[in-house]
Amino acid sequence: MTGSTRRAPFRANQAGLSHYALIFAIIAISIVAAFPLVWMVLSSFKTPAESMQVPPVWIPKTPSLEAYSEVSGVINAGRSFTNSAIIATTTTLGILITSLMAGYAFAKYRFRGRNLVFALLISTMFLPPIVTLIPLYRMVNSMGLNASLVGVIVPNLANAFGIFLMRQFIAGVPDDLIDAARVDGASELRIVFSVVAPAVVPAIAALALFAFVFHWNTYLWPLTILQGNTDDYPIVLSLGRLLSYNRGAMNTGLVMAGATLAVLPPLVLFVFLQRFFVDSIVSTGVKG
């Protein structure tokens, strides 16, 4: 008893020190990570003169919304946002549906070659996207879907990471629950969407967030398949036009205003769903 009371303060001090070191590290990493975002937002309120000033002006002296109003003059922001929303939302829905169904099959069905097929699927996660760009382009082109939003969306309606994530979570759903639904008369599709899906809501939310942010920000594939069809450009591609606008003297404020607008939807979504995002990483041990 005496021994433990002597040792207790020592442990508390140690815990305290490591606790503060951890907090310091978190703050330092957060500052480094947030710096570009904060710089982007602050720069979007600067005048062109402030943007180019050396040494740099951190906080704009006379914050201005001029750059924001100018964005619409250079690009069709409304159309670009709509395109981004269509691409990100449709792709996310597609990924959720295919991942739920395939994840359920891999987690709960016993069939010959299951592990081999799953391993092959997982191995595709390790392919750099650039490797599949040309073959994918040729395939989509041969289907006559080039230069269209459909061509941007279709190849991304299923992905290995989503299937992997869902399989991990669905494996934890008790078999008895699924058997009970079968006895109740539910079809396999009904089981997936009425029994399994509600049991893995955190994973669905996390996957929705992953997918939405990724496909909102995706650049290379739309650029490749849209073939200069600027009407169907998502906001991320349209931002490029802000960069090339007034090339003689680049308007940093204009670019930053466009980028700030572009980042808002995924940011808002992340704020709402971040709890699920963290839960999913903890549960699967997967880094996003």
């Binding site: 008790p174 008895d176 629950l177 058997d179 009970a180 639904a181 079968r182 006895v183 109740d184 008369g185 029994v195 509600p198 049991a199």
Partner: peptide, 19 residues
């Protein structure tokens, strides 16, 4: 299929739909 056999089953783990 189970639903067409005229049976009902009670499981050890209860198997109630949690949501």
């Amino acid at each position: 299929a189970p639903k067409d056999r005229g049976i009902a089953m009670v499981f050890q783990s209860y198997a109630l739909y949690p949501h």
